[in-house]
Each structure stands twice: as structure tokens, then as C-alpha cells.
């Protein structure tokens, strides 16, 4: 465990709590892509099946359970509790374009051909593209509310910190996880355009358009 890893996890948690808090306080999920949130719930579900098979640390278990709960509560808020405010006409990204290639790739390129490892690989690949429906929605409507942009900023920051964590681990432990690093780099690239808008426009106007 290094500083980049801890800060990365904290920023990931903060992103999810910000999003939940925003939905809860405004009693609305306008501008949030339900598809992205459903994909994140699927990512955590398929990755954290190891909760049942091996115990790593208390921190690890607690964080995994919190991430799972947050993602399920978010999906529940969007598709049930505050369904009326959900902007489904603008959440039109075709999920099969992500799910089909990601499923295929996880069967082809994995560490071992066992159900748990394939699901773990699937979750890594899926996480790298899960934000696309949200970014697609923002580009379609042409705007994002301030809190949504903060959410995306912290999610992107988490990715960037994880990259730093992998560089650190490579140098200190000689540990290098090829699948996670390649997907992580791809995922971080998706946030670059958004980061640019966030810094140049978001800060002064309070929203990204």
C-alpha cells in the first residue's frame, strides 16, 4: 500500500459519495447516465467475487463492500426512486457496443481460463469504458451540472493516481499487472478531454458546457 493507492481509493470513494449526495439532496438524477452507473455496478459485482474466495485485508474487504453498496444504491436511485427525473431520452449509448467486445476480449486475453479470472478480466476491461455512456450523454445535451463535473473529476483523478501507484509498485515491488495497466491507461485517456474542459471552463463558470 502506497500513498498514490490510498489517495486513489479515497478519490474514487469521494466521487461515488458526491454523486449519491447530489442525487439525494436534489431528489433528481438529471444529467446522470443510468447506463454508466449500471455498468459500474456490473464492474464491481464481477470483480469483487473474490470477497467469497479469499480474504486479503480488513481494508480491502470493507472498501469492496462500500463500493458495491454505493453503486447499487446509485442504480436504485436512478432506475426506481427518482426514475421520473431520469433523462432516459439522452442516455442512449448502445451498451452492446461495449459489452460484446469487452466479453470477447476477456475470454481471449486473461491470466487463466477460469470463471473467476475471466470475470475479473471482464471487470477490468469494462471499467475502462464504463464512463463512455456518461460522456456521450454530456456531449449530446451539451452541458453538465457542477457536481457531475466534480464527480467526473474525482473519478479521473482516481485513475491518474492508480497509474502513479502502478509505476511505484513496478519500481518498488517489481510488480506489474499488464491487463490492469493497459486498460487503466485507456481509461485515463477518456478523461483527458474532460479534464481539459474542467480546468479551462468548469472552474470559472461553475459548469462545463
Amino acid at each position: 500500500m502506497n500513498l498514490f493507492r490510498i489517495l486513489g481509493d479515497v478519490s474514487h470513494l469521494l466521487a461515488m459519495i458526491l454523486l449519491l449526495g447530489k442525487i439525494w439532496r436534489s431528489k433528481s438524477c438529471r444529467g446522470i447516465s443510468g447506463k454508466s452507473q449500471a455498468l459500474f455496478a456490473l464492474v464491481f459485482t464481477t470483480r469483487y467475487l473474490d470477497l467469497f474466495t479469499n480474504f486479503i485485508s480488513l481494508y480491502n474487504t470493507v472498501m469492496k463492500v462500500i463500493f458495491l453498496l454505493c453503486s447499487y444504491v446509485t442504480v436504485y436511485m436512478i432506475y426506481w426512486k427518482f426514475w421520473k427525473s431520469f433523462d432516459s431520452e439522452n442516455d442512449t449509448f448502445r451498451l452492446e457496443f461495449l459489452l460484446v467486445p469487452v466479453t470477447g476480449l476477456s475470454f481471449l486475453e486473461n491470466y487463466s481460463f477460469t470463471p473467476l479470472e475471466i470475470l475479473w478480466t471482464f471487470s477490468i476491461y469494462l471499467e475502462s469504458v464504463a464512463i463512455l455512456p456518461q460522456l456521450f450523454m454530456i456531449s449530446k445535451t451539451g452541458e453538465a451540472e457542477t457536481i457531475t463535473t466534480h464527480y467526473l473529476f474525482f473519478l479521473g483523478l482516481y485513475r491518474a493516481l492508480y497509474l502513479a501507484n502502478w509505476i511505484w509498485r513496478y519500481h518498488t515491488e517489481n510488480f506489474y499487472d499488464q491487463i490492469a495497466v493497459v486498460s487503466g491507461v485507456v481509461q485515463t485517456i477518456f478523461y483527458c478531454d474532460f479534464f481539459y474542459l474542467y480546468v479551462t471552463k468548469g472552474r470559472c463558470q461553475g459548469r462545463v458546457e
Binding site: 479469499n54 486479503i56 469492496k64 509498485r169 499487472d177
Partner: peptide
Amino acid sequence: KDQEARHDEL
């Protein structure tokens, strides 16, 4: 060992 190191990350 590597598998454990991977599953340690969130």
C-alpha cells in the same frame, strides 16, 4: 503471489 497482489487493488 501475483494473483493476490492483483486482487488487493480495488
